[in-house]
Write a protein that binds this DNA or RNA. Sequence first.
DNA 1: GTTGAGCGTT
Length: 271
Amino acid sequence: MSHFGRSGPPDIKDTYSLLVLNITFRTTADDLFPLFDKYGKVVDIFIPRDRRTGESRGFAFVRYKYAEEAQRAVEKLDGRTVDGRDIMVQFAKYGPNAEPIKKGRIVEAFSRSRGRSRSRSPRPRHRDDYKDRDHRRRSRSRSRSRSRGRYERDRYSTRQRDHPRHSSRSRSRSRSLSRSQSRSRSMSPGEYKGRGGGKFGERRNRSRSIDSASPARRSPSPERSLSPRKSPGENSPEKGDGDRSPVRSVSPKLQKADSRSPSPHSSDQHE
DNA sequence: GTTGAGCGTT
């Protein structure tokens, strides 16, 4: 009962999910728990966080056991100032399965099978609200969104763009291998028990190793951000493979004569 | 140390 969302969704068959927006990036489930629990029975609280940084995205999901309590929490906590910022509490429109929620209540996956329009009120909100929301959303699209923009890119970039071409695995394999090796992640499973104090047990991974996945994103010092276990010279697997190429005999004087001397590290041509 | 529209995890 102390840790929520540690092993995925506990039980969301008859729970009402509330979406808490406009919360600070430092607000945690433990901070929202007492607030929401005071107005009703909170089943679980989940705060989405970034995959790379692991920081909160600025919104949380609070699941209530009863809709009345959830509704009350929405009216009470909606617009409340938390951590110096006014939060917005509203019923979640979409479920964890990317499926629409009926009246804020999360329905099971098989529910949609037999759930043929049992309710003719898919929008608990007023028409004005919907229009307003659309308008605001459109306006937001024009403006640059930083937090969300980067996340969208990342979430869609989860798929590895490996080209399974079995043409010549002799050379092509070098690239794939290099990527795989770069995926070195040092995650200790014992970290789960090491944490004490967090009731909800937020999965806040402080691992900065993920930065290696995208060094050209937010690395003011790429040199330092580089994996310490890997040498910059070996960072050019392609060159290393090329070294094995038969075309390796190059006269030293020729190199000098050539202005574009192929340096082992500077030869990092764009892929 | 940062940002601020929106909809989620093992």
